[in-house]
């Protein structure tokens, strides 16, 4: 089977996706997706993961159920999502209309030496999302496909999943805050108001 060649650069893709984020809440999977979002769309409404591999999509689900009026965007990598693949089934069953998942799929584990991931060997995450009862899922290879898809990410009823095929490059590190309590307090205060850290939660 021949596949389209991969031409998208991950950071350009993330900038394109988040340019129109408005008041959307963003959760980033550990490693490059965290650096990409920090570099292109830094905001207190970003919850950056530096660990908890396999958990990004489920954090997105909890957040989406708690904030049904806000769009929640999870931006993660192929390796991170493969580790929590059961969460696609859970999300498909819960069917949150306001949750969109973007997989920056470079078909490799970028943080650990660029070893191949399962997506380089025929595993199709979009097909798994469709089979898991997602409202829609697609794989995007070109700038044109990406541009056409981005409005749906914010507009269409979810859960949605987009596998954005990106080149296995490593743009310069852009490191956000490291400390988990700082990241979560900043996020909660931006979303829930300045009293979020003082009051009983």
């Amino acid at each position: 089977m021949t596949r389209p060649s991969i031409t998208l650069e991950r950071r350009d893709a993330v900038a394109t996706i988040l340019k129109s984020r408005g008041d959307a809440l963003v959760v980033t999977g550990l490693g490059s997706p965290t650096w990409d979002v920090a570099a292109t769309s830094e905001s207190p409404l970003n919850f950056y993961l530096w660990g908890a591999m396999g958990g990004a999509a489920m954090i997105g689900l909890g957040l989406a159920l708690a904030q049904p009026a806000r769009r929640v965007i999870v931006i993660t990598g192929d390796g991170e999502l493969l580790m929590g693949m059961g969460s696609l089934a859970t999300i498909g069953v819960e069917h949150p209309a306001n949750l969109s998942i973007v997989v920056l799929d470079n078909e490799h584990y970028g943080e650990t030496g660029m070893q191949e991931s399962h997506t380089a060997r025929g595993v199709d995450l979009a097909a798994i999302a469709v089979a898991s009862n997602f409202a829609s899922a697609s794989t995007l290879y070109t700038r044109r496909e990406l541009d056409a898809w981005v409005p749906a990410l914010y507009r269409d009823a979810g859960p949605l999943l987009g596998v954005v095929k990106v080149r296995p490059t490593q743009p310069p590190l852009q490191v956000p805050a490291r400390d988990g309590t700082s990241i979560r307090s900043r996020f909660r205060e931006a979303l829930l108001g300045p009293g979020a850290s003082r009051e009983s939660s």
Partner: peptide
């Protein structure tokens, strides 16, 4: 599908005020 999903879900819920 597995308990660790619930740990992440609970964190996301609390980030969202629930």
């Amino acid at each position: 599908t597995t308990e660790e999903e619930g740990i992440a879900l609970a964190a996301g819920a609390w980030l969202g005020g629930a």
